[in-house]
């Protein structure tokens, strides 16, 4: 049965792939087993991350890029993440509305993922899902984050190449040199460049990239009109150049990066555990907060002390 699974994944059997993604996304023991089974298949298709503000055109841009890649005979998997409701946990995943051309193309797999409460721009199980896509032998994996503000930079940890999508009228030249999302870009896309003020936006982005700094990599600024497919071939070429560049490990501080990645993964898992398991201490702290006996910060200190004492006892 396991070998069937591997063959089906390799052949991009869409039903099997869809179910495998669900298992990986949901996590737990089943997901671990799945990842163990597919390990021998794992290759490393480049992961291209796309981030930017809501409505900047990420989905439309990806849709246009997929068309270009298909013309170049490359197979593509797309993960499109949309936010989950802070109230119900549900989600309307609407990225499909802009990626409506590839539904029946066997060389394209598109999956909508809910962030499921994650706040860094990605979703809880996304790295497991990527392992499944790697086992399915796609040439490229495109990863679209939720609409991001200034600091949702998790995609930098997962993607080999980060594309940050900007639009005209999104701020002046000071916005362009702030820390955060613009800093993680390998490629800056000035989308909707048919709008008024687009030239200014491009100028500001280029100027900000040309300020003297100790950054070693070159960030290119590309202007596109995703709805009309303009600039997309150029973007695809730039992505290829960057992908070739990363055969050498890219100039990031890998030790610190790995450490940060690991610690975050642990934190996410602990968060899920604490939210879902029966835990009298947590219940007690919640009750105290609700009764007004303490605030959240005090409760955190008590929790951490509680954990440390438990550890020293054992």
């Amino acid at each position: 049965m396991n070998s069937d699974l591997l063959v089906s994944l390799r052949a991009k059997d869409r039903s099997v792939l869809g179910r495998a993604v669900t298992v990986a996304e949901n996590g737990g023991e089943k997901a671990e087993r799945l990842l163990e089974i597919i390990k021998p298949l794992s290759k490393s298709a480049p992961i291209i991350g796309f981030t930017g503000t809501p409505g900047s055109g990420k989905s439309t841009l990806i849709d246009a890029l997929v068309t270009v890649y298909r013309k170049r005979n490359l197979t593509v998997a797309v993960l499109a993440i949309d936010p989950s409701s802070p109230f119900s946990g549900g989600a309307v995943l609407g990225d499909r509305c802009r990626m409506n051309r590839h539904q029946t193309d066997g060389g394209v797999y598109i999956r909508s993922l809910s962030a499921r409460g994650s706040v860094g721009g990605l979703s809880i199980g996304v790295s497991r899902v990527i392992s499944v896509l790697q086992a399915s032998d796609f040439d490229l994996i495109l990863l679209e984050t939720v609409g991001a503000g200034q600091s949702e930079v998790d995609v930098f940890e997962l993607a080999d190449v980060c594309v940050v999508v900007c639009t005209p009228n999104s701020g002046d030249d000071i916005q362009a040199i702030k820390s955060g999302i613009l800093e993680i870009a390998d490629i800056l896309v000035a989308n909707k460049s048919d709008l008024a003020d687009a030239d200014n936006t491009i100028k500001q982005l280029v100027l900000a990239q040309n300020l003297p700094s100790n950054k070693s990599r070159h960030v290119s600024v590309i202007s596109t009109i995703a709805t009309q497919g303009e600039g997309i071939e150029n973007l695809a070429d730039q992505i290829s150049l960057q992908v070739e560049g990363i055969k050498e490990p890219r100039g990031k501080d890998t030790d610190m990066q790995t450490r940060r990645h690991l610690v975050r993964a642990i934190a996410r898992q602990m968060e899920q555990n604490l939210l879902n398991e029966d835990n009298p201490k947590i219940d007690q702290l919640c009750a105290s907060i609700i009764n007004g006996e303490m605030n959240t910060n005090e409760a955190v200190s008590i929790w951490i002390n509680h954990q440390t004492t438990r550890k020293t006892k054992s």
């Binding site: 409701s85 549900g90 309307v92 409506n100």
Partner: peptide, 18 residues
Amino acid sequence: RDAGMEVIYTPPWQDIAA
């Protein structure tokens, strides 16, 4: 969505194969 489900929403005019 408000009932906690994940809804994949598409534009109209889909064909059966899609």
